[in-house]
Write a protein that binds this DNA or RNA. Sequence first.
DNA 1: CCATGTGTATCAATACAACAATACACATAG
DNA 2: CTATGTGTATTGTTGTATTGATACACATGG
Lengths: 128, 128
Amino acid sequence: MDASLLTITPGAAEPIYRQIVEQLRRMITSGQLPPGESLPSVRDVAGRHAINPMTVSRAYSLLEGEGLLERLRGMGMVVAATRRARPAGERMSLLEPRLHDLARAARELELPASRVLRRLGELLEDGE
Amino acid sequence: MDASLLTITPGAAEPIYRQIVEQLRRMITSGQLPPGESLPSVRDVAGRHAINPMTVSRAYSLLEGEGLLERLRGMGMVVAATRRARPAGERMSLLEPRLHDLARAARELELPASRVLRRLGELLEDGE
DNA sequence: CCATGTGTATCAATACAACAATACACATAG
DNA sequence: CTATGTGTATTGTTGTATTGATACACATGG
């Protein structure tokens, strides 16, 4: 995997290490990063995004703790062999909290459901 | 306005004062809280949710800085008289960041747009 | 005047994130 | 063996954010 595929925003409210964790978790869960795929080295990611190597290492370690990554000593990190892409229903559950937040915000803003759905539809198509 | 209308989750990642700020901002922007409507006292909110009065005060002060609230000295806070409900287009922009985050997460999870939209549709209807 | 109700200024405590600079253990290429 | 590449443990520092405790200024009702 190329280090440039990670989107990192140092100024954001969400801490950097968690941005990395959640992004990789999603890409592994979907199978976008297949088992055996090797990840960019911590120094590579750190250098390219001008962040501290230990911050990247922290993210990798957390994912190893989840069983999503495996550590090959002396070599890099790799997507765990046992980790296959999960079915859509399971992936969907990772989206649920965000969906609930969005729904609540839309309700408090008294926005018509049709308008929210239409806009989201646009954004979902643009990305592909 | 009743203090119990606020939904506060002390354990959440989002800080308490910001939960209050964003919630009230949405309710004022939509007109759900009309100009002149008085807000619950800081001690009322704090007592009911077991949080510190200063945390509530901080939220109120930020909203006063935005021009959404007015301070009546010695008495409480009130929705600013000049603050009318905003048109839907403007309210929509408050939702944009959340929509982008959601779209990105869905893309990384490789979830079909139809499924995401369907689920959001359900959640939007349940709330009303 | 006094009791009670507002919001808040001030200071302190705590937690967290990120960085910096090493040093170490391991594996591979030469 | 050596050089270079992995990840990581360690220690310390810095900056910031969040929350809390206390005391104060103001307004109103009695």
